[in-house]
Simulated assay, not measured.
Amino acid sequence: MNKDFREIGHCGGKLRVDVETGDDDSRAYSLGYSHSSAGPAAFFMIYAIPQGIPVATISTPGLGQEMPPPPVPGSFPLIIASDSEGRFGHRCESCGEYWRSSGAPSAWPLTCPYCGLRAPTHAFLTLGQRAYVSEFCELIESAVNAGESATIDMDALADKVGEDTERPRFYYSEVSQQNQFICGACGAWNDVLGRYAYCSSCGTRNDVAELVLAIARIREQVNGGGAPDECVKGAVSAFDTAAKKIADELIRLVPMTTARRNRLKDKRFHDIRARATDINELFGIDVFDGFQQDDIDFTAMMFHRRHIYEHGGGEVDKKYIEESGDISVRPKQTLRETKENVHRLAGLVTKMVRTLHKGFHDIFPAHPTPLKIEAEKQALMKSRQLGYR
């Protein structure tokens, strides 16, 4: 079953606005949220001004702690709950794209997986969440003015969804995307459109992880008897895609002259020596860092072979010999690829993308807070495992 773009309902529960009237007829209110279904649920809190405009993400207080003051006096604290999978939908106001994630942090900003914009969680509300915020603000005002408490039964509203009626007020749902991945740097879960993206929690790109998956499939293919020449094409193509994604982001984000930008813009990585020189001179990232000269020569040769396999039916021409430096063949000879070459190439392209990835994040670092939290969690888990031995 295709799970792309599947509607995912609200997690349900009941939201309460409890209003109390004092002896002097002054009124105060508090919010409550209860959830009794078996499915997962999560929530975060924001401040919004009475007109329904979000202005801050609230650091949820613990027991006995007071709510932090709003940045705008008179703002309402609001609860925003997750979908029925315990995930949150987000929408970037800059690029207009949508995604889901496992968290809605208040201690650090979210990152748009597509354009890389960093902003507080409340700046990435979906259209459905924004409509809910507006309705919720209106409910609080009317409840306080009337001096009467109010309850929103999201379970009852969810039951009405799908009926041949207008979608209920306050109700919002989310939509699954195409690529669900767990960030290797901070452990956050993401659900994005397409393959390549930033982690929305820490901002680490997933290019290396996607390449590693592709290379693993290629190794499995060649080990299972797949044609080595096809595997060479696959390995070079996987590298070209991942490397170009990183290069495109560097071009987009690093200020430079048009002439310098055009050195890489719309360029593929088939001529790996030329592209490596461009990237090193433009961004100070040595794609061949840690390579021996033999590794560089082999990589360049295999990239040229990919072109012969793709466009020449595997038959060598004079241009290939001149550009690749491969003196083991002569014009008109058909290349005979080996499994060993595929595995060597697979390791080298992975190493190059790791270098590009590291160089990118040297320029545009991931957010340190979620990385620190994940490192502390992993250290704790490791210490517990050692304690059980």
Rank of each mutant, 00 (worst) to 15 (best):
S142W: 00
S106G: 13
G52C: 00
D24H: 00
F43T: 10
G96W: 01
E135R: 14
F124R: 12
G86I: 08
G103I: 13
T57Y: 00
C115Q: 10
E141C: 07
Y33C: 07
E97Q: 15
L78V: 12
F44I: 09
I53W: 01
S134G: 15
F88W: 06
A119K: 13
A56H: 14
S101C: 12
T111L: 05
M67T: 13
E20T: 15
P70F: 00
G22A: 00
V19K: 05
Y98W: 09
E135N: 12
G103F: 02
P61N: 08
G52K: 08
A48S: 12
I53M: 11
S142R: 15
C112V: 11
F88I: 10
L31H: 07
L31K: 10
Q129H: 06
Q129S: 05
V19P: 03
A119E: 07
P40A: 09
F44T: 12
G116F: 02
F76Q: 10
A119G: 08
S82D: 06
T60F: 01
G103H: 10
G39W: 04
R87S: 12
R118M: 05
P73I: 04
M67G: 05
P109A: 04
A81P: 01
P73M: 03
D83C: 11
F136E: 07
P70V: 04
V133I: 06
S94E: 15
V19F: 01
Y114W: 04
L139P: 11
T60D: 06
S75T: 09
R91N: 11
P105H: 03
F76L: 07
M45V: 12
R27D: 01
P77G: 07
R87K: 14
G128R: 09
S94L: 13
G103Y: 02
E141N: 12
E141Y: 04
Y98R: 14
G39R: 15
F43Y: 15
P109L: 01
A107K: 13
G62N: 12
G52H: 04
Y132F: 15
F43I: 06
D18V: 14
G116Y: 02
L78Q: 11
L117I: 14
A104H: 06
S30L: 09
T60R: 14
T21H: 02
Y132T: 10
E66S: 14
G62F: 02
Y29S: 06
C112I: 11
G39L: 10
V133W: 01
G89K: 03
A123G: 03
S75H: 03
F44A: 10
A42H: 10
P54Q: 06
P105L: 03
P71V: 11
T21E: 02
S134V: 11
E138Q: 15
R130N: 13
D24M: 01
G96K: 08
Y47M: 05
S37R: 15
E93Y: 09
G128C: 00
P70S: 06
E138R: 15
L127Y: 07
L31D: 08
G89R: 02
S30V: 13
V17P: 07
F136I: 08
Y29Q: 05
L125I: 09
Q51Y: 00
F136H: 14
P61K: 10
G64Y: 01
S82N: 08
D18E: 15
S37Y: 04
F88Q: 10
F76M: 08
S34V: 14
A131N: 13
D18I: 14
